[in-house]
Design a protein around this nucleic acid. Structure first.
Length: 382
DNA sequence: ATAGGGTTACGT
DNA sequence: ACGTAACCCTAT
């Protein structure tokens, strides 16, 4: 195992919040040591893990003041503080400790969701993602057998089939410039536009967030914790880095530290009077809200909280008791799941995220997800 | 399907 | 009264 391979593994693992600290630290100890300074993801992952640990005292419900104190200690740690983005490093709240801790947790969640994809994820995207056909098309037989080894038999067959189809229609797939935004673009959007070069570089390679690799990654974490991670991922990594090394390595130096300072003021929209087009003031008759009984967000998801769509009769005969319906507040679980979803599937892939957590988002539309994430984002960006 | 402008209900 | 979370509408 070369230091380069160790770097790829650690960089992947550090930035995946689903992989527990215990596993991460085990890897940290057993693998050849790597310098975190070449990777923003690795740096931020290390820092966020430390902060997470400080904030999640699961033993006894520690008082907020204690958590805050611990968190501040982490933030002030001279080894870690350079790794935090500015708004976290300079975090200070004059609210009560509990509010400050809640604020901090929110910021940390967002920061996790904003981590750029790892180089392995990007590499995986290149060999199975939307751009993969080009790579496969131009690969000679020896390279193809390497690729086949990496992606697995069935995926290889799929890709080759597609390739065949495209060859028969005599057309290679076009580059999709309207591809949805990825984590990487999200980061660069949100961060100040001061160092375009590095971000653009990342964007070009992570044109679309991969799906399968992330999902596999998560499944293996949930299912078979440590053994698999330590053994099975290693040969793949070596092959990957030997095959793709020149394209993903050597760029490390070129990637500048992430700058997430103040955000562009243009993002702040001041509600202004709008020459309203037409009867926007009128509530859409198809709109409905409903009550979410109780505040049971932590436990059993209510099984049958179904939105009741208004029927025709109801329109003609409006309910006399017109009980004022509350709106559906987002539960903490839903918020966390959304952030996790964005981390795993990329910002903008709302449909995908919704489908990935059907129970949690049963009563949320993709637009709801998008709106909610926009709200969460504003906490960070304003 | 998604982004972004706009509206409304709710908490303060 | 005001800021904002949740929701709605529409252009792309």
């Amino acid at each position: 195992m070369t230091p380069g391979d160790a770097f790829l593994i650690l960089e992947l693992v550090a930035g995946n919040r689903l992989i527990p600290n215990s596993i991460f630290t085990t890897l940290l100890i057993k693998l050849p040591s790597v310098s975190p300074h070449t990777s923003p993801r690795l740096r931020a992952g290390l820092a966020l893990r430390a902060l997470d640990a400080a904030l999640s005292e699961t033993e006894a419900p520690a008082p907020a003041a204690v958590l805050l104190h611990k968190a501040r200690a982490v933030l002030a740690d001279p080894d870690l503080s350079p790794c935090f983005p500015e708004h976290l490093a300079s975090f200070s709240a004059d609210d009560a400790p509990s509010a400050a801790v809640a604020d901090l947790k929110r910021l940390v969640d967002l920061e996790w969701a904003s981590l750029p994809p790892s180089k392995l994820e990007i590499a995986a995207e290149r060999i199975v993602g939307s751009e993969a056909l080009h790579l496969w098309a131009s690969a000679d037989p020896a390279q193809r057998s390497k690729l086949r080894l990496l992606v697995g038999e069935s995926t290889a067959r799929d890709i080759l089939n597609k390739l065949q189809q495209d060859a028969s229609t005599n057309r290679l797939p076009q580059l999709d410039h309207n591809a949805p935004k990825t984590k990487a673009t999200y980061v660069s959007d949100c961060a100040q536009q001061t160092d375009r070069a590095g971000s653009v570089e990342l964007n070009a390679k992570a044109d679309r967030p991969q799906q399968d690799t992330t999902r596999h990654q998560q499944e293996s974490v949930h299912g078979v914790p440590s053994r698999q991670l330590q053994e099975s991922s290693i040969p793949g990594a070596s092959i990957t880095s030997s095959l793709l090394g020149e394209s993903i390595r050597g760029k490390e130096e070129a990637i500048p530290a992430r700058v997430t300072g103040q955000f562009a003021p243009e993002n702040i929209k001041n509600h202004q009077i709008t020459g309203s087009k037409h009867s926007l003031m009128e509530r859409n008759s198809t709109a409905s809200t409903f009550e979410w009984d109780g505040l049971g967000d932590s436990d059993a998801e209510r099984p049958a909280a179904k939105r009741q769509l208004p029927s025709f009769e109801r329109i003609t005969k409006p309910s006399p008791t017109a009980a004022h319906k509350m709106r559906n507040k987002w539960s903490e679980i839903q918020e966390k799941t959304l952030l996790e979803g964005v981390q795993a599937h990329g910002k903008g892939n709302w449909k995908e995220i919704k489908m990935a957590y059907p129970d949690v988002f049963e009563d949320r539309s993709t637009v709801d997800l998008k709106d909610k994430f926009r709200n969460l984002e504003r906490h960070l960006c304003v």
